[in-house]
Design a protein around this nucleic acid. Structure first.
Lengths: 122, 122
DNA sequence: GTCACTGTATTAGATACTTAATACAGTGAC
DNA sequence: GTCACTGTATTAAGTATCTAATACAGTGAC
């Protein structure tokens, strides 16, 4: 997990997205237990309150379960994970097209441009 | 120009991006004059100070020129515009791949997924 | 029972952003 | 010269975010 933040958005929101991706990509497998708030806060280099806020948000999304005095675990609901993963992917696709269209680039041209860079090493 | 803002990022930053896209896409052609700070502020529904901040940022990027007492114009430097447009497009491509990779999706699969949605109406 | 660990809550301070209400200097039309 | 418009600057207030420093209740190992 790489905790790198930009200062153009709230840190807690960025944490939510990072952990979301960790769960949706399988880095945090279904049912596995998460480090404690305090440990995660140290790892990420943020205040425990900030990490707490992010984890609370993840819980309302159903991605994380909390056992009041014994830590948190990733949900076991693999169908939910798969569904959210597909939704996220679809959102990224549309976000790409939207950005390119606002530059005056059609969906077709946007697709060609992307296709030509699949092999690039970035 | 559609002035719609989310509250997860600074409004002034969002204004910068919207006007940038307007210039790079040709909605604001090279050399054309921009509405005044106060008019743009009303259009966008924000405080003049906020619009001023965004326009100042655009000027440091070289996309906009200011004639101290007679308004602002879009730069005439079409090469700069073209260059920035290509850079922005390349950035969106990489951003897409990065997002998909953090979901555990390879560049190749990310390209296929996108290709399959070119024709969608969104 | 003690200790070390959980999540959670509260208070205070610093900072950034946005709005609001002004003000000033320069320009161009009349 | 007056008026209406430019960009720019300043001050104050409200809000959101993050940090810091605590505190409390519950659990499990020993």
């Amino acid at each position: 997990m790489q905790w790198e933040f930009t200062n153009d958005r709230a840190i807690s929101s960025q944490i939510v997205e990072i952990i979301q991706k960790g769960i949706l990509s399988g880095v945090y497998p279904p049912g596995s237990s998460l480090p404690s708030v305090r440990v995660l806060a140290v790892e990420a280099g943020v205040n425990p309150n900030t990490m707490q806020k992010a984890l609370a948000e993840l819980e309302t999304q159903g991605l994380v379960r909390t056992q009041r005095n014994s830590g948190r675990t990733v949900t076991n609901d693999e169908r939910l994970i798969m569904k959210l993963k597909e939704q996220a992917a679809a959102r990224y696709v549309e976000q790409y097209f939207t950005h390119m269209q606002s530059l005056g680039i059609t969906r077709g041209d946007a697709a060609s441009t992307l296709q030509s860079q699949v092999g690039e090493v970035s």
